[in-house]
Design a protein around this nucleic acid. Structure first.
Lengths: 174, 174
DNA sequence: TGAGTGTTATTACAATATGGAATATTCTCG
DNA sequence: CGAGAATATTCCATATTGTAATAACACTCA
């Protein structure tokens, strides 16, 4: 029932713009989102199949002469709700910014959703808290290897926070 | 024959210290490396099995009364060569620093291998080159989303480079 | 003109990965 | 003494991934 992975959400995001069949979904993904995310054909089909089983999408067959029938997927209300929940929630780790958070920003912009600065602020909150925790851990560490590890996390989180603050300017609420 | 994934290398690193059976390898992993890497039991066993097939390790059975026989794994010369190749080569992406590069540093320290600053310098070289490429891409981009994406990469890479320079001090050649 | 390549469109299958449970004994702590 | 943690490994059911098979047509370049 539940999916933890994010590629499903990306596919939901694509279907938010209207019904599409698997091949089209993949094409869109490859052309518009390839800068930060890759999904293979078979993955797209497999995910859509599962999403249909989960009630996030429904399909209808469109028969074609001399070609295999297209299977056109539409997002359901449940799917829309799920997608929007995802789009407006921050990611848990710095490592998820590069792909998952980017995807959220991408769809918020693409679908002209309101509240970009809201999600950016929430994300800043999450990372700020992690930063504080890591700083505390670092202070309580004698081992130099552990300290180096913590320094790395602190450096990455700090630069992510700087970037998020820049983002608020880039994506300044229309 | 070839393995692209790194967990194998971590197991080789552990076996560099001497023969161990699966459970011991996992225990060591869990206690010493858990700060930056997690592997499940079944993964450890599966990996060791494959590594034996690949000639990186060999096993001998140690029979025990009233207990299942322990399977003790030793690293082969091929395994040692492979491990050292890996340990002294930089990772390709910033995202691989957190786990894989950390593991290299960990083993270099743990096994008292020479040339920490060598690998750090190589890593700095790789990331510096990526940084230049990304900076160029950013300049040639009109789209604001693309620009934000590039900014993120630049920020993360820059902070990683700063950290690597700090590392040279932390791990100053004994 | 025809051979090869690219696009549209989906399914099937094999290989691997991952998580969880099954098994069975011994140690440890209250 | 009994509960539960530790020792030690294997097995199995899914998940995931990559590759190939299929099939028609459009394009292209020699």
């Amino acid at each position: 029932m539940s999916f933890k992975l994010s590629p499903e959400y990306a596919l939901l995001g694509i279907l938010m713009r209207g019904p599409k069949h698997g091949y089209e979904v993949h094409s869109y993904f490859s052309s518009e989102m390839s800068q930060f995310w890759h999904l293979s054909m078979s993955q797209v089909y497999a995910l859509l199949k599962r999403m249909e089983k989960n009630g996030m999408v429904v399909s209808r067959k469109e028969l074609q002469e001399k070609r295999p029938a297209k299977k056109i997927f539409s997002i359901t209300q449940a799917g829309k709700d799920r997608f929007l929940d995802w789009a407006y929630s921050p990611v848990k780790h710095v490592r998820d910014l590069r792909i998952e958070f980017m995807a959220k920003l991408f769809f918020i912009k693409e679908l002209k959703l309101k509240g970009v600065s809201g999600i950016i602020d929430k994300q800043i909150g999450v990372l700020q808290e992690k930063l504080d925790v890591t700083r505390n851990s670092k202070e309580r560490t004698a081992d130099e290897f552990q300290a180096a590890l913590h320094s790395f996390k602190i450096a990455q989180t700090t630069s992510a926070l700087d970037w998020l603050n820049q983002c608020k300017i880039y994506f300044y609420e229309n």
